Computed example of a mutant assay.
Amino acid sequence: MSQEDPLTACLDLTRRLPPQAIESNLELLCAVLPDLADDLLGSVDQPLKIRVDGGGRQYLVCDYNRDGDSYRSPWTNSYDPPLADGTVPSPKLRKLEAAMGDAFDVYRDMYYEGGVSSVYLWDTEDGFAGVVLLKKTNDSAGSTASWDSVHVFESTERGRTAHYKLTSTIMLYLAKDIAPGEETKGEGKVELGGSMTRQNELDAPHDPSSTSATLSSHISNVGRMIEDMEGKMRSSLQEVYFSKTKDITTTLRSSVGYAEDNKHRALQGELVGLLRGKAQAQQA
């Protein structure tokens, strides 16, 4: 068996496991297959975690802003715990990272009305790459919900045109706990979770005439790609996954009860019989 086979099988397995348990499942997979630990940790998206930097501002941590055991804040550009030789973007790319971070902070406020966002960029041989992270959680009495968006992109400049490759992953988790005092009513905990990944490529106009024009071009192009992608993925979740789940739930369990449903069916049959008899009498 080739080395790629177990890795492919592990990646396929993680895509089918609930996202809320992906961290513990990854630990088990890494313990069973330690030679694949680095590949698994670098390939599998995990629910985002929130930290607070030295300036008191929240930011999201993932493998893209990690260096060893430290994480870099996109607002201060410093690592926590402090790291003297931590990887940081070039000064030119750092300006774009800060500007793009501010732009997506506005995007987060408009579309999510809360939550946390972070943008991280790094230099590549042909241009640059980056990741846009968005997280929104909602904990209310008896229910928990979490939305995580991970948008990884690459950009290659070609004169006055830039080519972008985008890979977007959304992880969604919903749970309803048993309310206090409801344990005897036969209701149990309900959990619904999953992840979705989509890809897209785009060639868009790029203005290299000045630094400010370059920043504006990249922010506009990447922002439009992510906005369109999130809109399509939200629609797919709403129309396909949630509608399908509702259909399955309705088929398995009637909300009105069998006795009430039988009464409705009997009444419908009686009305159909009366209408049919009236129609036959009119024809005679």
Rank of each mutant, 00 (worst) to 15 (best):
D102P: 09
D207L: 07
P208V: 08
R108G: 02
E187F: 15
A129K: 05
V106T: 14
L134H: 06
S149T: 08
T137M: 13
G115I: 01
S155N: 14
A129H: 04
R158P: 05
D203E: 15
D148K: 00
R198F: 05
D148N: 11
D102Q: 15
T167A: 15
S143L: 04
M171K: 01
M110H: 11
E187G: 14
I170T: 06
G159P: 12
T156L: 07
D203N: 15
V116L: 13
R198E: 09
M171S: 02
V152H: 02
D203F: 10
W122V: 00
E154W: 10
A103I: 03
I178N: 03
S140R: 08
T169F: 01
T184V: 11
D105H: 12
H206N: 13
T144S: 15
D126R: 15
I178W: 03
V152Q: 03
D177T: 06
L192S: 06
D177C: 03
T161P: 04
K165V: 02
A162E: 09
R158L: 14
A179N: 13
G181V: 06
E157N: 09
A204S: 11
L174Y: 10
L166V: 11
G181L: 04
K165W: 01
T124A: 08
G159M: 10
W122L: 00
E183D: 06
R158V: 10
K165F: 01
V132P: 14
K176P: 03
S195H: 01
E201M: 08
T167K: 14
G114C: 01
G130S: 14
I178E: 04
E157Q: 10
E191W: 02
R160Y: 15
F153R: 04
S140P: 02
A141H: 07
G186D: 14
D177K: 06
L174I: 05
L202T: 07
F128P: 08
P208D: 12
F104W: 09
A129G: 13
K165P: 00
Y112V: 00
T137R: 12
S155W: 06
I170E: 04
T169I: 02
S118R: 02
V131L: 09
G101V: 08
G142A: 09
G101R: 07
G181E: 05
A179W: 11
N200C: 15
T144W: 12
R160W: 12
L202C: 12
S140G: 13
I170H: 03
G188F: 07
V131A: 08
Y164L: 02
V152E: 02
L121R: 06
S168D: 00
D139Q: 14
S168I: 00
D203S: 13
S149W: 07
W147C: 00
Y173Q: 04
T124D: 10
A141I: 07
W122Q: 00
G194C: 02
G188L: 09
T137G: 15
P208T: 09
A129T: 03
E125C: 05
D102T: 13
S209N: 13
Y164P: 02
T161I: 09
E125Q: 13
N138H: 14
W122Y: 04
M110D: 11
T156Y: 04
M171D: 00
W147K: 01
N200R: 15
S143F: 08
E201P: 03
H163L: 10
K189G: 07
F153W: 05
S117W: 00
D139P: 09
V131S: 09
L166Q: 12
